[in-house]
């Protein structure tokens, strides 16, 4: 007997909840034959603004959770993703990937989460140092998260690219607001469901779906964002992000790579991109 499948509704992911866009708008994602796969929420400026408030409020407690705890949570995400990998593979295929590519991408994405989970209590040791100053002071430099980070996710490799960019940001104690791949947004929202069931505190990762042309300038000009990462090659967007970022001296990172599957995407230097160096002095004389 045939049975009508239940279709999934894709919504936004903000503050650990799945709201629809306050604007009530949507855009359609079709497969290569033009059949509707899903209607995605078309996030508005206000959705974005709300997400920033939530991400800001979540940031300090996330940063203050122990390194071990952050590592375990990232590992938990990997576990949950592993358990649902078939769904993710199917979604990628539905969005036009070949079966082999889709499988590779999902497996790599899981492994990448495990990779960065392992860094959570190690990267500080790699980047911190004690500075041998000439005066009688103990002086050390450590990394601290930059704060709230906006991420314009890669258009292709919509799952692997997304995870490769946000894992190093959150393992370093930042909270993020992501604009998912515009053309392949399904994996990002399904990934939000994984996040939501993985002990990731609400507000640490916030995912919007929508149009770059509407939202990127909002991301770049928001005065309460500390950093913006753009994955892509649109020189016009890079120019306007760079210009608007100067409003509040935002740190900008541009990843122009097309392929997030290579080993070169795994290093603690990705974590360093969203960190600040803090140096502390204290006298040592008694």
């Amino acid at each position: 007997m045939s049975r009508l499948a239940i279709q999934k509704t894709y919504k936004l992911y903000i503050g650990g909840k799945f709201p629809r866009s306050e604007s009530g708008r949507f855009y359609a994602i079709n497969d290569s034959k033009g059949n509707l796969i899903a209607n995605m929420c078309l996030a508005s400026r206000k959705d974005f603004r709300n997400a920033v408030v939530i991400a800001r409020n979540a940031q300090s407690s996330w940063a203050n959770s122990s390194a071990l705890n952050k590592g375990q949570i990232l590992y938990r995400i990997a576990e949950m993703l592993e358990g649902r990998k078939e769904q993710f593979i199917a979604e990628l295929i539905a969005q036009g990937e070949t079966a082999e590519n889709a499988k590779n991408e999902v497996l790599l994405a899981i492994d990448r989460l495990v990779y960065f989970a392992g860094w959570s209590d190690k990267y500080q040791q790699f980047f911190s140092c004690i500075n041998p100053v000439s005066s009688a002071h103990f002086n050390f430099s450590v990394l601290e998260p930059v704060g709230v980070v906006a991420v314009i996710a890669p258009e292709k490799q919509s799952l692997l690219g997304l995870i490769s960019v946000i894992a190093p940001a959150i393992v370093g104690g930042n909270t993020v607001i992501v604009l998912a791949s515009e053309s392949k947004p399904l994996s990002a929202i399904s990934f939000a469901e994984v996040l939501n069931s993985s002990d990731v505190p609400g507000g640490v990762v916030n995912i919007l779906t929508g149009k770059k042309e509407e939202l990127v300038n909002q991301f770049a000009s928001h005065m309460d964002l500390n950093s913006i990462i753009y994955c892509g090659t649109d020189e016009q967007l890079i120019l306007s992000i760079s210009e608007l970022a100067s409003n509040n001296v935002k740190r900008t990172t541009f990843y122009k790579k097309n392929d997030w599957s290579s080993d070169s995407c795994e290093s603690p230097y990705f974590i360093e991109k969203t960190q600040e160096v803090k140096t502390t002095w204290h006298p040592t004389e008694i």
Partner: peptide, 8 residues
């Protein structure tokens, strides 16, 4: 008293 400060 903080010795380093006194020394300064």
């Amino acid at each position: 008293y903080d010795t380093a400060g006194v020394n300064e």
